[in-house]
Computed example of a mutant assay.
Amino acid sequence: MNILLISEYILMGALAIFAIATIRITTRKKIAMALVGLSGLSIAIATMLILVQHVYNLGFCKDIATALIFLGPVGTIAFARVLRG
């Protein structure tokens, strides 16, 4: 194993811990904290998908990560507009 592959696995572990922390933030009672948590979770999952694509040579992970990054803020804005009334 080379050092790059080891560092990618360490980054995947760190992103998994970050994803768990953002799920914890999402379950708070305030709506703003839920939006922050979901935004962080989408970033963590998109980064993890890019790493999986790089390590295992899967072509579809990059497309899913790109869609997740673009649609995350759109959903947040739509939800905020619904809450405003």
Rank of each mutant, 00 (worst) to 15 (best):
G59K: 02
M33G: 12
T27I: 12
S42V: 02
I64R: 00
M48P: 03
L51C: 07
R81F: 15
T76N: 11
R28N: 13
L41T: 02
F70S: 02
K62R: 10
I50F: 02
D63F: 13
T66N: 03
I25T: 08
G37C: 03
D63G: 08
V82S: 12
F70Q: 06
T47D: 03
R81G: 14
I20N: 12
A19G: 15
A44E: 00
L49A: 02
K29L: 10
I77M: 09
L38F: 09
Q53E: 07
R81W: 12
G40W: 00
V52F: 04
T76D: 12
A80C: 15
A65P: 04
I31K: 03
A80V: 15
G40I: 00
L51N: 08
A67W: 13
A21W: 13
I43C: 13
I50G: 00
S39G: 03
G72A: 08
I77A: 11
C61I: 05
M33N: 10
G40V: 01
I50Y: 01
K62F: 07
I17S: 13
A67P: 05
T47Q: 04
G72V: 00
I23E: 13
A34M: 13
L68Q: 07
I20P: 12
G37Y: 06
I20V: 14
Q53K: 04
S42T: 04
F79N: 01
L71Q: 05
L51V: 11
V82K: 11
Y56S: 01
L68T: 06
G40Y: 02
P73E: 12
T76C: 14
A32N: 12
L35W: 04
A46T: 02
F70D: 04
T26S: 11
A19P: 13
Y56Q: 11
G72T: 03
A32C: 09
A80W: 13
K29Q: 14
R28Y: 12
M33P: 06
I17R: 12
L49Q: 01
I64H: 05
I45N: 02
A78I: 09
L71H: 08
T22N: 05
T47K: 00
T47C: 03
L38H: 02
F60L: 14
A44W: 02
L41R: 01
L68D: 10
A46S: 09
N57G: 09
A65R: 01
I45W: 00
L41F: 10
I20M: 13
L51P: 06
I50M: 03
H54L: 08
A34H: 08
R24W: 08
Q53M: 05
R28V: 11
L38E: 06
K29I: 10
T22Y: 10
I17N: 14
K30F: 13
F18R: 05
G40A: 00
G40F: 04
V36R: 03
L41W: 07
A44D: 01
I17L: 15
A34I: 09
I50D: 03
A65N: 03
I23W: 14
T26P: 09
I45T: 06
D63E: 15
I64K: 01
L49D: 01
R24S: 10
R81E: 15
I50A: 03
D63C: 08
